[in-house]
């Protein structure tokens, strides 16, 4: 295994240069952006590339903008950028809430959206939010570009469809309707700097009074190998008047949609219960926000 002191770091100045470096399959290389995951893996000797391709300074991949095809978020956009973006607060509130729950302020300042996606942790806080915003991930290599819907992007814990010569170059999300409101719920062992035991994102279309829901998307994290869209629960959203009793009834079904494991942080039974609890709490808080809007 290579010694840490012998590892090289190269910092490409442009995307083209980066793609060229990635294309050199002779070399064992790996991307590093904010380093909030990569440095930890390096310290644990889990990631030991010969060359780190440092893309942190590649500002062409750091942007938030809107066009007719959707909202485009550059992969090097930091969580702090997301939290502060007026556009996202307005048209993708659930993503700003999720970004605000990642680690602590220092991690939010360094960590990037592309890193959170590429790392593919089942506990990644921004990913359920991207699910409910129907995100598409653009991947580029020296030979071209392809776009993958987020539901097809993750294969398992830490595993994605990204090829070794590819890099995430764009994240495209659906802007929320004016009638749409989102929420992100996280249960961790403490409030700050924690890894989710269960997390939950919702984005829901409501009528003006908030009495009826016309459609909604719900996603759970940390309760399966990848994020889980709770489709049964989603279909129940429109069945009845959108109120406390409906959310309670939906929450009673939520545990059936998830497939959590037991680990040092929580038992699978508790995680199932918490899928229900976070769904109920999230929708109750969402109603409150709608009222105050």
């Amino acid at each position: 295994m290579i010694k840490t002191s012998e590892m090289q770091v190269v910092s490409p100045k442009s995307l083209d240069e980066c793609l060229y470096l990635l294309n050199d399959q002779e070399k064992n290389n790996r991307l590093i952006a904010g380093g909030t995951d990569a440095v930890v893996r390096m310290k644990d000797k889990k990631w030991t590339p010969d060359i780190w391709i440092n893309i942190k300074g590649m500002n062409e991949l750091r942007y938030i903008r809107k066009d007719p095809s959707g909202i485009h978020v550059g992969p090097l956009t930091t969580h702090t950028d997301i939290v502060k973006s007026k556009l996202l607060q307005d048209k993708a509130d659930v993503l700003t809430f999720a970004a605000k729950e990642v680690g602590a302020t220092q991690m939010q300042n360094m960590g990037t959206l592309g890193g959170n996606i590429g790392n593919a942790s089942p506990t990644g806080d921004t990913i359920p939010a991207l699910y409910v915003l129907d995100a598409r991930i653009e991947l580029s290599s020296l030979y071209g570009t392809r776009t993958v819907p987020i539901e097809e992007f993750f294969i398992g814990p830490g595993k994605t469809v990204i090829q070794t010569d590819e890099i995430i170059t764009d994240i495209i999300i659906r802007p929320q309707d004016t009638s749409e409101i989102g929420i992100f719920e996280k249960l961790g062992p403490r409030k700050a700097q924690s890894i989710s035991i269960v997390n939950f994102a919702a984005s829901i279309n409501l009528d003006k009074e908030g009495h009826h829901c016309s459609s909604g998307r719900l996603a759970f994290g940390s309760v399966g190998p990848t994020i889980i869209r709770a489709k049964k629960c989603e279909s129940m959203l429109t069945l009845d008047r959108f109120d406390k009793s409906l959310t309670h009834n939906i929450s009673k079904v939520a545990w059936k949609e998830v497939a959590p494991i037991s680990d040092a942080r929580a038992s699978s039974n508790y995680r199932r219960d918490m899928a229900s609890a976070l769904l109920e709490r999230g929708l109750l808080r969402l109603m409150k926000r709608w009222e105050n809007k």
């Binding site: 602590a104 062992p189 403490r190 409030k191 700050a192 700097q193 924690s194 890894i195 040092a264 942080r265």
Partner: peptide, 27 residues
């Protein structure tokens, strides 16, 4: 409310401050 070093079969399951939860200013 938070802290415990978990040892199973003589091996530490807790390894660092990431899984040993101490209160922060938010707690």
């Amino acid at each position: 409310l938070y802290e415990d070093v978990i040892i199973e079969e003589g091996y530490h399951k807790t390894s660092n401050l990431g899984d040993y939860i101490i209160p922060t200013i938010r707690e």
